[in-house]
C-alpha cells in the first residue's frame, strides 16, 4: 500500500479511474433497476413490494462495508502512519452515511407495505440507526479537529471503536427475536429464489463501484484543497 503513499502518484491513478468507476457503476445499477422492476417475478407473499430489495440490500451492505473500510483506514493511520489513510477515512464517511440513510428510508417504505409499520425498535433497525449516528459523529469529529487533510488521532480511534457495531448489526436478527426476518444470503447459500435474486448482483456491484468513485472524488477534493491552501499561504508570506 505504501506505493500509493505519494499523493502525486495516487492522484495520477485516481484521476483516470474515477470516471470509469462512476459510469460503469451507473450502467450496472441502471440495468439492475430495470431488471428488478420489469424482468423478475413478484414474490409469492410480498408481491411487487419485494423489488425495493434491489436498492435496500446493497445500500445496507455498503453502509456496513463503508464503516469496515473506514476502520481499516483508521488502523492504517494509527499503526503505519500511512499519509493517505486519514484522507481515505474522511472520504468514506459521507457516502457511508448516505447509503446507510438510503437503507433506512427504503427499509421504512418496505416495512410499511409488508409488516404494516414504518418503524419499530427491533434489533436490526435500532443498530442500523446507531450506525447512521456513528457516521454523523465521525464526520463532526473529523471536521472539528485542526487536521484538515488527514484526521486527528481521536477521530481515527473513534473510527476503530465504531466498528464494533457492524457485527452487532449483522447478528441482530440471529441473537434477538426481531420483526426483521433472518439472513437470506449466508455462506451456505441463498433462500431467495435465483429468478428473484439475480438483479441484486448488478445493483450491488453498481452501487459499490459508485461508492468507490465518490470516495476517490472526495479524496481528490481534500488533497486539492490542501494544495490550494498551501499555495495561498506561500503567496501571502512572499
Amino acid at each position: 500500500m505504501h506505493a500509493f503513499a505519494n499523493p502525486t502518484r495516487f492522484l495520477s491513478i485516481a484521476r483516470p479511474v474515477t470516471p470509469w468507476l462512476l459510469w460503469l457503476g451507473a450502467l450496472l445499477s441502471g440495468y439492475g433497476f430495470y431488471a428488478g422492476l420489469f424482468l423478475t417475478p413478484p414474490d409469492y407473499l410480498q408481491g411487487e413490494s419485494v423489488r425495493i430489495m434491489y436498492v435496500h440490500v446493497p445500500a445496507a451492505w455498503l453502509g456496513m462495508g463503508g464503516w469496515m473500510g473506514l476502520a481499516v483506514a483508521s488502523l492504517a493511520q494509527l499503526v503505519w502512519r500511512h499519509p493517505l489513510a486519514g484522507v481515505a477515512a474522511r472520504a468514506i464517511a459521507a457516502p457511508g452515511a448516505l447509503f446507510t440513510a438510503i437503507c433506512l428510508v427504503t427499509g421504512s417504505i418496505w416495512g410499511s407495505r409488508t409488516w404494516g409499520t414504518w418503524w419499530q425498535w427491533d434489533g436490526r433497525m435500532t443498530s442500523m440507526l446507531v450506525l447512521l449516528f456513528l457516521y454523523f459523529g465521525y464526520i463532526a469529529l473529523a471536521n472539528a479537529s485542526d487536521e484538515k487533510v488527514s484526521v486527528s488521532k481521536a477521530t481515527a480511534i473513534f473510527g476503530l471503536i465504531g466498528a464494533v457495531n457492524v457485527p452487532i448489526i449483522n447478528r441482530s436478527v440471529v441473537w434477538w427475536n426481531s420483526l426483521h426476518q433472518g439472513p437470506s444470503i449466508t455462506l451456505k447459500g441463498s433462500t431467495i429464489a435465483p429468478e428473484i435474486l439475480w438483479p441484486l448482483a448488478f445493483t450491488t456491484l453498481g452501487f459499490s463501484l459508485m461508492f468507490g468513485a465518490i470516495v476517490l472524488m472526495r479524496m481528490r477534493t481534500v488533497l486539492a484543497s490542501a494544495k490550494v491552501e498551501a499555495r495561498l499561504r506561500r503567496l501571502t508570506t512572499a
Binding site: 417475478p41 409469492y44 407473499l45 419485494v50 430489495m53 426476518q181 433472518g182
Partner: peptide, 20 residues
C-alpha cells in the same frame, strides 16, 4: 396492533404453489 412478519425465503408465486 398487528404486524405481519415474513421469513427470509423469497420465491415467485409458481414456485411457492409447487413446493413453498
Amino acid at each position: 396492533t398487528i404486524l405481519a412478519k415474513h421469513d427470509e425465503r423469497y420465491m415467485p408465486p409458481e414456485l411457492a404453489r409447487k413446493n413453498g
